Computed example of a mutant assay.
Amino acid sequence: MAEALAKISQVQGLGMIQIRANLLRSGEVIARAVDLVLPAPMLTTRQGERMLGWMSPDELILIAPQPQIAGLLAALEEALEGHHALVVDVSDMRVVFDIQGARADQALAKLCPADAANLPEAGLRRTRAAQAACGFWRHGQGFRLMGFRSVADYLRGILEGAAAPGTHLDPR
């Protein structure tokens, strides 16, 4: 019997803050407020269980354990007072899945047009998994995939299908 490409599990207990701002003007203020280095395009910076990821030229995502979110949100709001910025707790609208195993990149390759195998260690890639918008980054022996909670069941189903032995899914 063939072995699964990866193990899929939903991650609990993470919180997320979406940050929209002119990163050239406000980036260092944001970085100081959350005690993380501002990431370069398509990369992340991490400290302990917190991660700051570059999503676009004017957008970052801060991921941290849920109990830290209220304090981080308050710190960001205070630091960005007077800046043209948006800081929103998006924890309840997102879902995160772990895709773990030596062949996790092959499972993602069935669903995503992005090249997971060559993603840098600190990389963050926005893409799609089949028809759902998502982002993914390296985590442990595999990846973490973030998507909208409204399509959580769909994401779980396609991830489990892609990880199953012998499946061939077309991401288009």
Rank of each mutant, 00 (worst) to 15 (best):
A104E: 06
L155C: 09
A129C: 15
I63A: 11
S9A: 14
R25H: 11
L145V: 12
L24V: 07
R46T: 15
D98I: 00
S150D: 09
L124Q: 08
M1V: 09
R20T: 13
G147R: 02
A116Q: 08
P113N: 13
H84S: 15
S91T: 15
F97P: 01
N22K: 09
P67N: 10
A114V: 08
A6D: 06
G123L: 05
D115M: 09
S56L: 11
A64T: 05
R94H: 11
G27S: 09
L36D: 03
G147V: 06
R94K: 13
A70N: 06
R156N: 14
I8T: 02
E78A: 14
H83N: 09
V95N: 00
A75C: 05
V88C: 04
G27H: 07
L73D: 03
R20F: 05
G157A: 12
A107H: 01
S9I: 04
G48E: 14
P39S: 11
K110I: 03
L119H: 10
D92Y: 02
M42I: 02
I99F: 10
S150W: 03
H83E: 14
L111K: 06
I19V: 15
R149T: 07
A64E: 00
R128K: 14
V95W: 01
L5R: 15
L23S: 06
A162Y: 08
A79P: 12
A33T: 08
P165S: 14
V34R: 00
A85C: 11
I30K: 04
V151R: 06
L43S: 07
A4V: 03
V34N: 04
V29K: 05
A162R: 05
L155A: 06
I19S: 04
R156P: 01
R94N: 12
D35G: 07
M55T: 00
A21F: 01
Q106G: 03
I69H: 03
A132I: 13
D35T: 10
D170L: 12
P67D: 10
A6Y: 04
H84G: 08
A109I: 08
R126I: 07
R125I: 12
A74P: 00
